[in-house]
């Protein structure tokens, strides 16, 4: 589905991704894990073309990334921190993006009621709380019903109710045949959601395999323990 070969990205002298090879399988939830500054967000931004990588290849659904933007029609992206033009209201942002993106936002209404946001849609985004903005963020990434979902710390800042709503949604998307990439620091969440883990360490893949396998291999009772053991 997504193939990454020899991906290298430097910010000035700092080499963030060092000839990274990885693969994301279709219709699976893949979690990218790693400590702070290990290059998770950079990897995601390279997939999206937000960061320009120095060398290597990325192939998404047999399309090799080359600067053409149309492949992003298949991707829904939820950034780590929701950044919106502050004067606009949530519904204006949704209208604007559906206007600019060729597909139609078939899911928007359904998602707004799913996340119980109907009351917040007409308020300027700058007056909304972090969690509420994060929900708007989720709606924007899901509303076009894209084949690939890229979620960068999706549950950060969400209350328990919204967080489980979002996780249910992610499971539902997988059941509907989508490919999902998530990052998170909450291991229990990853254990709950992900099929496969990509563990990033110093700009390379340290571990790549199914979550169960990792837990079984190390003989620990949960993912957090397993990773701690693997690292020691």
């Amino acid at each position: 589905m997504i193939k990454i070969r020899g991906l290298q990205k430097c910010f000035g002298r700092l080499e963030v991704l060092k000839e990274l090879d990885a693969e994301v399988q279709e219709n699976k939830i893949t979690a990218i894990v790693g400590h702070n500054g290990s290059g998770k967000t950079t990897l995601i931004k390279c997939l999206l073309g937000l960061d320009k990588y120095d060398s290597g290849d990325i192939t998404i659904k047999d399309f090799k990334l080359n600067g053409d933007w149309s492949y992003r029609n298949q991707i829904g992206y939820m950034p780590q921190i929701a950044r919106f033009p502050e004067n606009l209201t949530a519904s204006e942002v949704i209208t604007m993006i559906s206007d600019l993106r060729t597909g139609s936002a078939t899911q928007a209404e359904e998602l707004i009621s799913y996340f119980r946001l109907s009351g917040e849609m007409e308020k300027p985004l700058k007056t909304l709380s972090g969690g509420t903005r994060q929900k708007v963020n989720a709606i924007v990434s899901l509303m076009f019903n894209p084949d690939i979902l890229i979620l960068d710390e999706p549950t950060a800042g969400l209350d328990p109710v919204s967080s489980s709503l979002l996780k249910d949604k992610i499971h539902a998307e997988k059941a509907a045949g989508k490919t999902v990439i998530i990052t998170s620091h909450i291991m229990s969440e990853i254990q709950e959601l992900a099929d496969t883990i990509l563990y990033l360490l110093d700009g390379k893949i340290f571990f790549d395999g199914p979550v169960n396998e990792l837990i079984e291999q190390t003989g620990e009772k949960n993912l957090e323990r397993a990773i701690a053991k693997m690292m020691s």
Partner: peptide, 12 residues
């Protein structure tokens, strides 16, 4: 800046 980041993750 926010507007750019929002739009660049879209097919634009």
């Amino acid at each position: 800046r926010e507007f750019m980041e929002l739009l660049l993750s879209q097919p634009i």
